[in-house]
Amino acid sequence: MTYAVSQALQAAVFDVLSTDPAVAAEVGSAIYDAVPAGAVPDIYLRLGSETVRDASDGSGAGSEHMLTVSVITVSPGFSSAKAAAAAVSDALHGADLALARGRLVFMRFDRASARRIDSASARQIDLRFRARVQDD
């Protein structure tokens, strides 16, 4: 098992999301690892939690990452959040990410959940992706 590729995977996910025109049309450049203090945009993406399992095989060390990208908005209803979530899903599902360390074997959409947060004044959609990486 290796966790060594995790940072490279996160950086590649950030790069793809921050350069994708459809994502930019929905959230601009509002993509965060940690949401900054102070005022935040009405809609933004947060790179979130990650669970990693061993996926080593005869060819070497590898891991499977279950990573979450959240769409958060204060807009009423889920329409804008779902449009942004669709753009994120399109950008990441099946993506061929270039990693600074290791290589991506595959990236697939796994599941999503949508809910009201902050006493129903905001909306959040958590998109979970499954990525298999190998540390070459």
Rank of each mutant, 00 (worst) to 15 (best):
A131P: 00
V88D: 02
L47T: 01
A85N: 06
E26P: 01
S121Y: 03
R130G: 01
T73V: 08
K82W: 04
V5R: 02
A85H: 07
G48M: 05
T19F: 03
F109R: 08
S119A: 14
T2K: 08
R46H: 02
A81C: 11
S18I: 12
V133H: 02
A34E: 14
S119M: 10
I31G: 03
V69S: 04
R46P: 00
R128V: 15
L127W: 03
G58H: 07
L17T: 07
R132E: 12
R103Y: 11
L127E: 10
L99R: 08
T2V: 04
A4K: 08
D90L: 12
A112L: 11
R116Y: 10
R103M: 10
A39C: 00
P36C: 08
T2R: 07
S18C: 12
S18K: 15
A120W: 09
V52E: 08
V133D: 02
F14I: 13
L67P: 00
A12R: 07
A86Y: 08
I117A: 01
D42V: 02
F14Q: 09
A112D: 13
S6Y: 08
R46S: 12
S119D: 15
L17R: 09
T19M: 06
Y3V: 07
V69L: 08
L97K: 07
L9K: 02
R103C: 01
S56E: 09
A30K: 03
A39Q: 14
F14S: 05
L127G: 04
A87H: 06
P36F: 06
A30V: 00
G58D: 13
Q10C: 01
P21H: 04
A11I: 09
G60I: 03
A85G: 14
R116S: 09
I72D: 06
L104C: 04
V27A: 09
A4L: 05
S89C: 12
A98S: 15
A87M: 12
A81Y: 05
P76R: 14
L92I: 03
A25L: 14
A86H: 07
S49C: 00
A24K: 12
T73A: 14
A61W: 12
D15Q: 14
S89Y: 01
F14D: 10
A11G: 01
R123D: 00
G62P: 01
V52N: 04
A100H: 01
E50Y: 01
M66Q: 07
M1R: 03
Y3C: 00
A100I: 00
R115A: 11
K82Q: 14
T68C: 06
S29Q: 13
D57W: 06
